[in-house]
């Protein structure tokens, strides 16, 4: 469970006059649940990339529980992310040819972190997301099932923060609702800080707080009534 604090963060890309994202100040408490919305191109994915350490801002500090990840080297950020962040993307990024359980375990295995405890947790997570056949090959799964595998993978190493970028956007309404529900439940059970980028009103309104981006700036910041 990690608290987040951004200060004076800005990032721009070559060829663009204005910064793609510019946030003077943003704090999310440990265990907080933040929804990020905004029009296409408003900077939501850029926000996810920055706070997950995939990308480094031009200026500013991004502190997770006191660790300013902007000061870490690329390899150190990889390591920090592996240990602290669970990512769920719109495209599931599963590896065809591998079983569900092997997909869940793959990053941990490559990081040599797949202990017996981690393996049994992988099985447990798969059943918690409602998948009864861990040996099923992922390319034979429905999209909803694939995203559940991705959710199990994100939670494997007990991350302090769970970050999802449009987790339901490529699912139909029903599957999307189920995955949204899972994210909320599991983040709650695992005690992870939750950041969800989504257009999906039914999902975002169930989080504690919603910010809205436009042209890289926070233009609205709404506290929601807690309801889960």
């Amino acid at each position: 469970m990690l608290p987040l604090a951004l200060s004076d963060v800005a990032i721009s890309f070559p060829g663009l006059a204005q910064p793609v994202l510019s946030i003077d100040h943003l704090e999310v408490p440990a265990g907080g649940r933040l929804a990020v919305t905004g029009a296409s191109g408003s900077g939501k994915s850029t926000f996810v990339n920055l706070v997950s350490g995939l990308e480094r801002p031009d200026t500013g500090a991004i502190r997770w529980d006191g660790t300013d990840i902007t000061t870490l080297s690329e390899s150190r950020r990889d390591l920090w992310r592996a240990q602290n962040v669970g990512l769920v993307m719109q495209d599931f990024h599963l590896f065809p040819g591998l079983a569900a359980i092997d997909n869940v375990l793959l990053p941990a295995r490559l990081a040599r972190a797949a202990t017996a405890e981690v393996k049994s947790r992988a099985h447990e997570l798969l059943s918690r997301v409602g998948l009864a056949r861990p040996e099923q090959s992922v390319e034979t799964m429905s999209r909803g099932e694939m995203q559940r595998v991705a959710v199990a993978r994100a939670l494997l190493r007990r991350p302090g923060v769970l970050i999802a970028d449009e987790p339901t956007a490529s699912l139909d309404a029903e599957a999307g609702a189920e995955v949204g529900q899972l994210l909320l439940e599991l983040a709650n059970q695992e005690g992870a800080t939750l950041i969800v980028v989504s257009h999906d009103e039914r999902l975002t309104e169930r989080l504690d707080r919603r910010i809205r981006l436009a042209d890289g700036h926070i233009v609205a910041d709404t506290a929601m009534r807690a309801s889960s």
Binding site: S52, D78, A82, L87, H93, P107, L110, A111
Partner: peptide, 13 residues
Amino acid sequence: KQIGALRAFGAPR
């Protein structure tokens, strides 16, 4: 894409 994803999800470089 696959290679990037591996790293994003926690595989070391």
